[in-house]
């Protein structure tokens, strides 16, 4: 079975470590905040100038001056800090954020990512995504393995305008967890019940299949 949105978020959360500063993109990455293990302290960075983002506010706590990068009202955790956008991207570009999780339209086996524009169709802008992929060393891209019509999003070469060049090393899809190395996707884990053959048939880019590919486990 392909992973649900919650399972994708849960698998992302398995990459968290105690003491990590993490930037979560809009969508599935944001959901990963719901699965931070209880015995772990993770500080969420929101690129509009907040380190230590908390949960959504109660109705009476809503503050128009306190939002996240998706423009949603949020709260702050104890120990939070506020700063300008320039300072925020100094943190990001300077490599101070431990883990970045973001979505994409396509990733290719050279580590290129396309996530911000579909010419003639969707031109909303890259927001902070280009800075995030250029600045972070530890990035996980989460996305669907194939489009609704079955077309692979794990390409030999991205067909859409790039957000970043050669910067993605790890991709989590609804079918598999893969690393990108030496011009190939390397299959690391399968979604429970999904076969290597199915992953292979839905991956356009070069795929290296190790002898043993374990199923993901969700405790």
């Amino acid at each position: 079975m392909a992973l649900t949105r919650d399972q994708l978020a849960q698998r992302v959360a398995q990459e968290f470590r105690d003491g990590y500063y993490v930037n979560l993109g809009i969508g599935i990455p944001t959901l990963a905040a719901n699965f931070i293990p209880k015995n772990m302290n993770v500080m969420l960075q929101s690129e509009n100038g907040l380190l230590g983002m908390g949960q959504f506010p109660l109705d009476e706590e809503v503050d128009a001056d306190l939002i996240n990068a998706g423009k949603q009202t949020v709260t702050m955790v104890p120990g939070a800090a506020i700063f300008s956008s320039a300072e925020s991207f100094a943190m990001i570009r300077g490599g101070h954020v431990d883990l970045t999780v973001l979505g994409a339209f396509e990733v290719d086996c050279e580590g290129n990512i396309a996530s911000y524009m579909i010419p003639g169709k969707l031109i909303k802008g890259m927001g902070g995504a280009m800075d995030l992929v250029a600045g972070a060393d530890n990035i996980i891209v989460t996305m669907m393995h194939a489009s609704k019509s079955g077309e692979s999003k794990l390409r030999t070469q991205c067909s859409l305008p790039l957000t970043g060049k050669g910067c993605i090393k790890r991709v989590l899809t609804d079918l598999a967890l893969m690393d990108i190395e030496g011009g190939k996707f390397i299959l690391r884990e399968r979604a429970p019940g999904v076969t290597v053959e199915e992953i292979k048939s839905r991956t356009e880019g070069a795929l290296l299949i190790p002898d043993h590919v374990p199923e993901m486990s969700f405790a």
């Binding site: 690129e47 956008s85 927001g127 902070g128 800075d131």
Partner: peptide, 8 residues
């Protein structure tokens, strides 16, 4: 269109 960090 200018990346957010570059714009800042």
């Amino acid at each position: 269109l200018t990346p957010q960090g570059t714009l800042a």
